[in-house]
């Protein structure tokens, strides 16, 4: 059985904090698949994750360049499939290295390349609830991601973020 939790945030700063809590649980080989409409906060969450993974530089949207690389405690591949229209194109991106290598992959607009992602990954779906509030549905799809999601759940019960 896979774990799934729902967490609300009330601001971009809280979303960044949630990213920090998630990032603290990630390690080499983990993949986080992010889904949500334009302006949902995918890049903001990725910023929090990257900081927790020890990267202190700029984490900007990879929409145009498709892949940003950051060097933290592990290599971070910040991928954006927004401009991908055909999954076959992902083959050309060197997806094996990105999604099955030793780094952590953060994949925005992951729905455009689901079949190329590993089966065991953390799926994050972001819904907007008004201008600032966001609802994060975070789901595990295998044993490794279940450890991460359970860990996140445990961390949230002691923090300010609202668990629903």
């Amino acid at each position: 059985m896979s774990a799934s939790i729902v967490i609300g945030t009330a601001s971009a700063d809280e979303t960044r904090e949630l990213g920090g809590a998630l990032g603290a649980l990630l390690g080499a080989g983990d993949v986080v698949a992010l889904r949500g409409e334009l302006g949902a906060g995918k890049t903001v969450l990725a910023q929090g994750i990257a900081v927790a993974l020890g990267f202190d530089g700029y984490v900007s949207s990879p929409t145009f360049v498709i892949v940003n690389e950051y060097r933290g405690l592990v290599d971070i591949h910040h991928v954006d499939l927004y401009r991908i229209s055909d999954e076959a194109e992902i083959d050309d991106l060197g997806y094996r290295e990105l999604f099955f290598g030793d780094g952590v992959a953060l994949v925005e607009w992951a729905g455009r390349g689901s079949s190329f992602l590993p089966d065991d990954r953390v799926d994050v779906h972001i819904d907007s609830a008004g201008r600032e509030r966001r609802i994060f549905t975070i789901t595990a799809s295998g044993p490794r991601s279940e450890v991460i999601v359970r860990g996140l759940e445990a961390s949230q019960t002691t923090s300010e973020a609202t668990s629903i």
């Binding site: 401009r83 991908i84 229209s85 076959a88 194109e89 050309d92």
Partner: peptide, 9 residues
């Protein structure tokens, strides 16, 4: 259709 270029790839 997605409002971006198809990097074709």
């Amino acid at each position: 259709e997605f409002g971006g270029v198809v990097p074709e790839h």
